[in-house]
Design a protein around this nucleic acid. Structure first.
Lengths: 178, 178
DNA sequence: CGTTACATGTAATTAGTTACATGATTGT
DNA sequence: ACAATCATGTAACTAATTACATGTAACG
């Protein structure tokens, strides 16, 4: 269901778009929140069109199909935002790795965490760059789109960075006592 | 692949266990990191046994099968921890909601965020309770198992709580200026 | 004329959820 | 006897990934 919601959200945020456009939007704007490949997006758009959540304006070069959200689509999106239960199953390879850290030798765990800290630092720099350069650059209909998710993404990345560094330091300290 | 890793990790952390035990461990200990139903766990254990990553000691009442990790299984787990690429696709309904916040009226968004803050506060209290009561209570072979993942979970939950409250306050402030 | 980007699809496979199905042991 | 818990499985379906397949328009 969430793919559908993400598509309806992008159509609201960016206005009428093709499947191709939406595929790129997944990569460029909400990849921290959700992602999908074109092979999943195209069939879903066709299903949604059949159900009346979006309309197709078949026009444009190369068989391009532009989709626009309908009243029904907006209602579905709104219902999801307001009604849906808060806590759905959540999977995180990062958290799984955290759980499994004690399967490694302390020096290996420390090296792994330091490596990950580097990756998170790079991602953090990238996200902060986006925040600095945002403003009117984006294609959103309201400037607020993307802002809250970006802020959340920056906080989460910083959290992972701090956690990795502090946990590495802690393991080093306790291993040194042996 | 991650289900397999999670199972190998639990068998390392808790020692030989049945599919039933592992199903409960998913619920009670690593639900923040990964979850799986028995209908996914049982077939996966059988596949892993066929591939030699675990051994079956068919014994115990009610057709209970106890699984133990093998050398090959440990090697697979270790390889995943050390070799695997860091950034795999990540989906988060929480982040998707954050992106979609501007589709709501400001007062609705504020109400939603405050509601979520409550949920996160409850979860935080629960996790901190677990941390306070831990020590020798758990079935882990090393006391460190669960500790790093629990710390990470607490940090992440606190982050969501803070983000929800601060974002609610911010939206309220900017909506008040209209 | 060739390459890159645009543009849409389907097929095969793997991962995960929900529902169905069955039976044994323990405790009251 | 009854209920709760232990214990394992399969079937049907939905979600997602990877690979296959095709063709058009724009740019140099």
């Amino acid at each position: 269901m969430s793919l559908r919601i993400a598509l309806l959200g992008l159509l609201t945020a960016a206005g009428p778009s093709s499947g191709y456009d939406l595929t790129k939007l997944f990569e460029s704007s909400i990849s921290n929140a959700w992602q999908a490949r074109h092979s999943q997006i195209y069939p879903e758009l066709n299903k949604m069109a059949a159900e009346g959540l979006v309309t197709v304006e078949e026009a444009g070069p190369r068989g391009r199909k532009s989709y626009a959200i309908t009243k029904e689509g907006s209602a579905e999106l709104r219902a999801w935002m307001l009604d849906e239960q808060p806590e759905r199953p959540h999977r995180s390879e990062g958290a799984l790795r955290a759980f499994l850290l004690p399967t490694l030798e302390p020096h290996e765990a420390v090296a792994l965490l330091r490596e990950q800290a580097k990756t998170h630092a790079a991602k953090l720099a990238q996200l902060e760059g986006i925040r600095a350069r945002r403003a009117e650059s984006s294609a959103w209909r309201k400037p607020a789109f993307g802002r809250y998710a970006l802020d959340l993404g920056i906080r989460q990345t910083r959290l992972m960075l701090d956690w990795a560094e502090e946990t590495a330091a802690e393991i080093e300290r306790s291993a040194g006592q042996d």
